[in-house]
Design a binder for these strands. Structure first.
Lengths: 223, 223, 223, 223
DNA sequence: TATGAATGAGGTTTCATTCAT
DNA sequence: CATGAATGAAACCTCATTCAT
């Protein structure tokens, strides 16, 4: 994931000289800044100049590494999806009871999205663009949707123990979790403005997280 | 979706003079086109030139009526919110049994959003912009959120009859309905791409609408 | 070909105010400057900034009228071809004896190309680009190659009178004339440098024009 | 102008170290690629990056050997002119009858240019640049224009035998040959497009080569 | 010598907005 | 009111060239 072939000494020298010689570092720097700018302003709204200015490097390097603005956006998307999938893979819910596992997964999802509004906003931006960048990215396409496997395992165990209603579609459950978690970030601005509802405070998040988890549990609950 | 209410007289006058002379018609024409353009491309992505080109009138008129691009966007938002609120107010659920009423309201919401993706996309765009235009618009602010009244009535009746669990927050219920309905449109591109799931066909919509309604009913169901 | 609908008074006013309101004039101004720049520097070598600077108008207007740099180049080509075809059409050689007519046509062609090096250089540039802009231009494609009709008439009369050898291809004759006329401009720089030969002075042009005409006459001369 | 200063010792060292060590090979590789790129795209149109990419070596080497882009272009021109002069010198026409010799020389020239369009195109490019690179190159300047000597010999013998008309200028004859041969390549794109004439097929080339030779023979033919 | 990384200057193009008639 | 023309600022992107290792 990182450079590694630059020893500490030479890097120090390079930095002193004003050149980094840490290509991976440069890439990561650009991606970090671009993630914020695209999440904040959208694809058309983000400014390459602004991204460059907030970077340790120059505009020229952005084009060197990413080709053009859209290439940079694709890379930003890939990185963002990569992060969440990496975490989803790490969740260890196999040892928990089905009901507890599902509640935990739901609450984790809710918390992750609320803790990472940039991810949510990037996904919104990409949806405004009809998913064309995602479609073009082989990397993301190849991402294996590990969350479904996790969820399937939980659900099947739950059905077996009688904790969950049979006959549900795992993707439906996942969509329900996602929708409820996502909305709290994606629509916060308009919803909280119209309904005068705090959606961002620690207390509000805790309340809503519980409501969301309850909703999901209600959905799978046997009649 | 638009026009149609230009009265015969003014149109006749306009045609006679060879000019349009239908200020309201001009406004509506511009708004209709701008709605599509903003919904399709976002605020920064939409082009004033393109909007003007697709209009019966000229760029000058856009500035004449709406001041600037943001003014036009605000007007587009206002019109979009106006339409949905008008319809929500028209729903007559007071005579229905609480459970049936809630299911109907949920399904209506789901269908409306899926039938009006432009509305959903405009709301996404406005959320990308942190709701600043909504906040600036007095008209939208003033819109009274009739849906809450409708929902509150249903919920209270349901609690009274024992059909619903007591102690829930009506805004929570509304948020749940909205989130589930909204997501199916807002995240369709990325979600269907990643999970290879059809979300737009008539059958898929019917299935999902039922799942969404079930989820909401599950949430309010007494233990 | 020109504006015409701007009366003198209003144009004077406009110019005083710093705005021209003479779209055709603006177009012609841009085309004139661009013709020189493209002829001097080629397509890639020419600078839109430089063209704009030498114009009465701004860079922005170039894009307004011509779309992009290539569009401007196409327009320049079209205008250049238009001029030479217009003149060719005006030549009145039908009344001359075949031999005199052919000599006159050849000398005219030679003189025109030497008097209009920009035309020759534009054609060179376009050939470096494999004719893609010409191919794209409907206007040029449609230009009817009047010169062939003129030449055919002369040739047929000459064959009839026995002045010319029979069995020649008119396009071959035209190609011969063109090649000999063109080369004197197109290859002047390298040829005169290598062979230390003056190719631009009035005397040199007169000498060469005669040699070219003699060559053409020799080609059609009966055995 | 550049390079050539790698002494034997360093080359030996380089070879021992397992690197390329064939400076001449590297130079030739670069020149071959650059010839194509400049011929295809012109001086401004050619891309140093593209040349480097198509080379076995790196961009650094281009600058090492040729100084800069223009230096490379000069070297390309020098090599191209060097090739044609070398061949012209090898022609052995002294033993042929004057008329046959002149026809042979003309047909050779025609064929060479048609077989080597890159040479023709480079000369076009250099002429677009007014011959400044040629003027700057001592090597090309020094090239002795052997073709003139060959031609002079043929012409004088022909005048002596009465086969050719007296009083012609040898450079004029050469220019006529060059013009007719050159045009068939240089103006092929535009001419064949406008006059719908095939100029590249084997048959078309044979036909035109004969017409060109006939033209030249007609020019020198006694009255 | 060889390579990928870096750079600055400048190139082309776009956009919201305004003006003149 | 209506229209095409005009504008300036700033956006995206490219290029020849150089540097560090």
């Amino acid at each position: 994931m990182v450079a590694a072939n630059t020893n500490r000494k030479s890097r120090a020298r390079a930095e002193a000289a004003g050149r980094s010689h840490d290509p991976e570092g440069v890439r990561r720097d650009i991606l970090a800044v671009a993630t914020e700018e695209f999440a904040d302003n959208g694809l058309s709204g983000a400014r390459v100049d602004e991204i460059a200015a907030r970077t340790q490097t120059s505009k020229r390097m952005i084009y060197y590494y990413f080709g053009d603005k859209e290439g940079l956006f694709v890379a930003v998307l890939e990185a963002a999806y990569g992060r969440i999938r990496a975490i989803e893979s790490d969740l260890d819910l196999a040892g928990m009871e089905p009901a507890a596992a599902l509640r935990t997964l739901t609450e984790f999802t809710f918390s992750y999205q609320n803790d990472n509004p940039d991810f949510v906003r990037l996904v919104m931006v990409e949806n405004i663009h009809k998913g064309v960048h995602l479609a073009r990215s082989e990397k993301i396409q190849a991402v294996n949707v590990s969350v479904l496997a996790v969820l399937r395992d939980i659900y099947q165990r739950g059905v077996a123990t009688g904790a969950f209603k049979a006959g549900l579609d795992v993707i439906d459950i996942h969509m329900t979790i996602s929708a409820l978690a996502f909305f709290n970030v994606s629509n916060r601005a308009t919803f909280s403005l119209i309904f005068k509802r705090d959606m961002a405070s620690r207390a509000a998040l805790a309340r809503r997280r519980k409501a969301v988890a309850d909703t999901v549990m209600g959905f799978v609950r046997p009649d």
